[in-house]
Design a protein around this nucleic acid. Structure first.
Lengths: 249, 249
DNA sequence: CGGCCCGTTGAGGCAAGTCAATCCACGTGG
DNA sequence: CCACGTGGATTGACTTGCCTCAACGGGCCG
């Protein structure tokens, strides 16, 4: 891997500017064509809304995309942030899927799945294709994390990817909020929360992170964390920019 | 949803007819706008082709979508069959991803990712949105399989899902070809091939399957297999129809 | 007939899961 | 301002399912 080294920090200055642009573009595209839902923590999008199909765009807040298969444990497929767009048709079995707010959130819901839902030829559709690809890319990475990394690598990858998604470029150190509970993180990483806790403690004794409180950690050694995951480059490629969005012409 | 209950068996006569229709629609949409590549077993799509981006449609054969992260093991994200369409932008890190033929295959490659690649307003774009959603749905299910099922359930789920994808509706018994190697299956299920082998043997002694030869098994007790996976309804929803395709109006 | 590759077994170890106890942060009410 | 209760987080002891590694077997092809 060529860029977990010292030069990996070389900043592509895309981060927050692009992020903002993307979020706003999404908001514009959804404007006036669907309901806007406000959610309080732990509240879910109404099932009816989900079963209507369509697209969900995150306007504000942090949310979790949950699945609870019949007779199974909860699993979190993704954490959603402003600018993310999730297509309902990906939820093949709507009663098992839900979108749950972790912090107070605003979600825009746009009905209709096909291109016909948009005025023909409009750029919006490219935007949503890009979002769709982005979702796919994230699932692919997540799959790799779950499928072949051990606990240590998973946790390190998670912390790094979250820091990357949070927008700004990464320095040597980074303050990271973790609004979600340990259970949420554990369910995202497909490990149990005891093991997660042990691993976080281990990272602390290794001097990689410092716990501020329940909902915030200070990543004191980004590069060190990077050495604990084999997929640093992949994470950068997927999470360091909000989407494989088309460059606006 | 309405189709997990006992009435879910109520056959939407989707199976093979729809499957054929879908495959043909995809072929038409790709016709004349990109190269057609023929692959022999274990051959991969040229890296250059993948890095060009665009979409890949399977015309014939069985293929595997591989990832080999830098320094990691091979992982198979999906098995691809005729009618499937995979968007390259999902491969965030093209040098890690590849499309490999398992049986002799034909793949159509269409350049361009955005809607602009298609004549505006054409139905094709709906078709590909649907395919994109279908990919997403499959990744979601796969995630659940890897993330929370034990070995036994994974193998049972795999056998069932493969039988479902093969088109026809399932009876009490089913002849299933397994053109891929045990290693391929193991890498798809994120278990090692020793464990997989043990599990297949176990299913045989339980009377659930009968091994015909290296590349074929007879599923002698579909319902029994179903009792070994908690996610039967999910599998049906995702795999029993080729895609969440738009109903042609 | 012989070699090779793929698949099947077996023995043993370890990482991670389970279960249960404890700790701590935080809010509440006296 | 402090005792108290609650729920999340941490820790420890124990168990186990799966991986590892190594040997064996059996088709398949030259």
């Amino acid at each position: 891997m060529t860029n977990s080294g010292p030069d990996s920090g070389v900043q592509k200055p895309r981060g927050s500017q692009f992020f903002l642009a993307n979020t706003q573009a999404v908001a514009r595209a959804f404007d006036g064509c669907g309901e806007v839902v406000t959610l309080r923590p732990q509240q879910r999008l109404p099932r009816a809304t989900i079963q209507n199909g369509g697209l969900f765009a995150i306007r504000e807040g942090l949310l979790a995309l949950d699945v609870i298969p019949p007779g199974g444990h909860r699993q979190i497929l993704d954490f959603l942030m402003p600018g993310d767009v999730v297509p309902a048709p990906g939820f093949v079995f709507p009663q098992s899927f839900s979108i749950r707010a972790i912090t107070p959130s605003i979600v825009m819901c746009r009905p209709g799945n096909g291109a016909s839902a948009w005025p023909t030829g409009e750029v919006h559709i490219d935007l949503f294709l890009a979002q769709c690809y982005s979702q796919l890319a994230r699932r692919n990475i997540h799959q790799i994390m779950i499928g072949q990394l051990d606990t240590e690598s998973r946790v390190a990858s998670f912390l790094l990817s979250l820091a990357m998604r949070r927008g700004e470029s990464l320095g040597a150190t980074h303050m990271l909020e973790l609004p979600m509970s340990r259970d949420d993180i554990a369910d995202y990483l497909a490990i149990n929360h005891d093991t997660l806790s042990r691993m976080m403690m281990r990272f602390e004794t290794l001097g990689l992170v410092r716990r501020i409180n329940r909902h915030a950690v200070h990543l004191t050694d980004i590069e060190g964390l990077g050495r604990h995951t084999p997929i640093g480059p992949l994470l950068l490629a997927v999470f360091a920019r909000p989407a494989c969005a088309p460059t606006p012409s």
